[in-house]
Deep mutational scan, measured.
Amino acid sequence: EEAIQNFKALLSDMVRSSDVSWSDTRRTLRKDHRWESGSLLEREEKEKLFNEHIEALTK
């Protein structure tokens, strides 16, 4: 649960536009030290959280 919250915070800070792809964003996020705290999450979970974040940005 904490890993999810940390990853959501990372997305909020780093992803402000809804027209970015997961693969491009992932490359950028990996450069942030907080990426490692999400290592407990599966890749699919990270992508799902990313997609939810993008959906929220479009509303």
Rank of each mutant, 00 (worst) to 15 (best):
K48S: 08
N51Y: 12
E42L: 12
R27H: 15
D32C: 04
L41N: 03
A3H: 08
E42Y: 08
R34G: 06
E44Q: 11
E47I: 09
L29E: 03
R34A: 04
K8N: 00
W22M: 04
E44D: 12
E47A: 05
D19V: 02
I4H: 13
H33L: 09
S37M: 12
S21V: 07
K59G: 10
F7G: 00
L40Y: 08
R34Q: 04
F50V: 01
R43D: 15
S12H: 12
D13C: 02
K48F: 04
W35F: 05
L29R: 00
N6P: 00
R16D: 09
K48E: 09
E47G: 00
A9R: 10
Q5E: 11
K46C: 11
L49P: 04
R43M: 15
T25I: 15
V20N: 02
H33E: 10
D32E: 02
T58K: 15
G38Y: 10
F7N: 07
E1F: 02
R16W: 02
E44A: 12
D24P: 01
T58L: 02
S18V: 13
R16Y: 05
K31Y: 06
H53Y: 01
G38F: 15
F7E: 01
E44G: 13
D13H: 03
A56E: 14
D13N: 04
K48I: 05
A3Q: 11
R26Y: 14
E42T: 15
I4G: 05
S21E: 08
T25D: 01
E52V: 02
L29M: 10
T28D: 12
A3S: 11
F7L: 00
H53V: 00
S23Y: 08
M14F: 08
S21C: 08
F7S: 05
L11D: 03
W22G: 06
D24H: 02
K46M: 14
N6D: 09
R16G: 07
K46R: 11
S21R: 08
W35D: 09
A9S: 13
V20R: 07
R30E: 15
R30N: 10
G38T: 15
R27V: 10
L10F: 13
